Amino acid sequence: MDLRNRRGVITGAGSGIGRELAVEFGRRGGDLLLVGRRQETLDETAELVRSAGGAASILELDVTAPGAAERIQAAAASPDLLVNNAGNVRAGRLDELPESDIHAMIDLNLTAPILLTRSLLGPLRAAGSDRGSIILNISSGIALVGMPFYTVYAATKSGIAHFGEALRRELHGTGVHVATAYPGATATPMMDSSTAGEDLGFGRRPVEDVVADVLAALESGAHEINTALPTRRKMQDLNVTDPLAVDAALAPRLGALEEATREHRSM
């Protein structure tokens, strides 16, 4: 895939993986619509994109709001790139999660990107028949190994991964490249409220390294992009062949994992 001079939409562009992706597409000459909830952080990202050599406009918007997809569609200029990155997390025992947090995760992590993709599919198809277009969905390593205390988050991230897989097959031959990234724990503000570290399987990678891996994989034509550390890769492989062995390995650390993730919330 040629990532140069992309006209695109990036959600959750105010910080973390979304910001770093915006800067790197800007470095490649991108003209980007940056979408997020906070004007201040979007302005900061836009300035970084322009400093890197790209162009950027911003749209301060909660992508879960009614009509959000239509507003983004109206603001996007013939996009050939869509990055569904906006997401949130709330860890904890399922029976202790507030209903509002459950709905917030489903709405932002799953419903909003589906609706936005549907709204932009026309111009993305049109671009696909020209130079090819890209839909990049940011899932999570937790979609590959469902971790305790992340039940709803795992459901939403597994959902967006299978949405991408099904859409990829639906769009076969159209020139629309649908890819899914599965980042492991990444050093972004989203992880600041969790104290789980490498000993519990949540060793953090620098966001720059994660995004570099994602873009290199996209350039090579990959559809499934896993940026997890080797220790988590081993667990993912074991989860495919012997999931009950993963249960047994996690069981002695359940108490420590619950304590470390008790305050993990990014809403």
Rank of each mutant, 00 (worst) to 15 (best):
S158A: 14
S158R: 13
S158F: 13
G159I: 06
G159N: 06
I160E: 06
I160Y: 07
I160Q: 06
A161N: 03
A161H: 09
A161P: 00
A161M: 10
A161Y: 02
A161S: 15
H162M: 14
F163C: 03
F163D: 01
F163G: 02
G164E: 00
G164F: 00
E165Q: 08
E165R: 12
A166F: 02
L167Y: 08
L167S: 12
L167I: 12
R168Y: 04
R168K: 09
R168E: 10
R168G: 14
R169W: 07
R169Q: 15
R169S: 14
R169F: 08
R169A: 15
E170M: 10
E170V: 09
L171G: 06
L171Y: 09
H172P: 00
H172F: 10
G173M: 13
G175E: 07
V176A: 14
H177V: 12
H177G: 12
V178Q: 12
V178A: 14
A179G: 09
A179T: 11
A179N: 10
T180I: 15
A181H: 11
A181D: 09
Y182D: 00
Y182H: 15
Y182C: 00
Y182G: 01
G184H: 10
G184W: 05
A185C: 11
A185H: 09
A185W: 05
T186K: 03
T186A: 08
T186L: 07
T186N: 05
T186D: 02
T186C: 08
T186W: 01
T186H: 04
A187D: 15
T188W: 06
T188S: 13
P189D: 10
P189Q: 11
P189R: 07
P189V: 07
P189E: 10
M190D: 03
M191W: 08
M191Y: 04
M191D: 01
D192N: 15
S193V: 02
S194N: 09
T195C: 11
T195I: 14
A196I: 07
A196E: 04
G197A: 14
G197W: 01
E198F: 13
D199C: 03
D199R: 15
D199P: 01
D199A: 15
L200H: 08
L200N: 09
L200R: 10
G201P: 04
G203K: 04
G203P: 04
G203D: 02
G203Q: 06
R204L: 05
R204F: 04
R204M: 04
R204I: 03
R205L: 14
P206R: 05
V207K: 00
V207F: 05
V207W: 02
E208I: 01
E208D: 14
E208N: 05
E208R: 11
E208V: 09
V210R: 00
V210Q: 01
V210F: 01
V210L: 03
V211L: 08
V211A: 06
A212Q: 13
A212C: 05
A212R: 15
D213R: 12
D213K: 11
D213N: 03
V214Y: 01
V214P: 00
V214W: 01
L215D: 03
L215Y: 05
